[in-house]
Design a protein around this nucleic acid. Sequence first.
DNA 1: CGGATGATTCTCT
DNA 2: GAGAATCATCCGC
Length: 285
Amino acid sequence: MPSGILCSAPLPRRFFDRPSHEVAPDLLGRVLVHGPVAVRLTEVEAYGGPGEDPAAHTYRGRTARNAVMFGPPGHLYVYFTYGMHFCANLVCLPEEFGSAVLLRAGEVVARADLARWRRSGGGLGDGGPDGGGLAGGGLGAPRRKPIADRDLARGPARLAVALGLAREHNGLDAVWEGSPAGLPQFPDPTPAQDGGRLDHATGPAGHPDHAGRLTGFPKGTAAVLEGWPPEADAIRSGPRTGISTAKDTPWRFWIDDDPTVSPYRPHTPRRRSAAATSVGEVPRS
DNA sequence: CGGATGATTCTCT
DNA sequence: GAGAATCATCCGC
């Protein structure tokens, strides 16, 4: 058994079978795995169901876009927004209730090299440095400075890119139902803190990545693992980011003082095009 | 640091 | 046709 490596158990489906505002804070510190990359969640937002949460995609009922949110709990709802970004949610409550938790930020805890490649413009064309490409999506213009570790999954669209989540993963089940032997292993980010909370790895070791870490999760599958939840008093909450309604509902949750939490941005109304500022004005090209 | 801005397309009104 | 659960970049301080 390698020292310093922990194996974290997958969360059962019943974990997600609760109201999203209860699931959301409980997701902090958990680890979302998709293929080789894993992210420890540090910031999330809860969205409620039809008629109860004006900021939710399901507020006005079921549509083709939000259908997954009305499906069984524990599945990924991945939607496209702003013409270029994907954002990932985890569906809560039983079928037909239409609520979810938006994954806003996290710390990449496995295959940061692959996450950085995706965030740096890879993943759009070829198969990737390890041959296992996956969709990049959205972000990824060539850039001048290398992306800092803390920024790899800092923000919902960045998190989606880092994990390789895009349109084709909408509806993917994030509850692990494979064999225990297939479980991934990750380095312990907080060694010797309060040992005993998690069991040490007993399964077969995966392949070492560029940083010498062990991974070994099957491609194309996802799971949420127990991970390393924060102390209860390190959980903060406040208004959700970037929405124009329900500004007073404190359903954004994050880990206090975590460097990967995204900066809070209140909703800024998109200014109408200059052409529409007055009646009869000649539109600009 | 904070504010402004453009990118780019889907969804629902 | 408007607005969107966003991000990177540019500019001024």
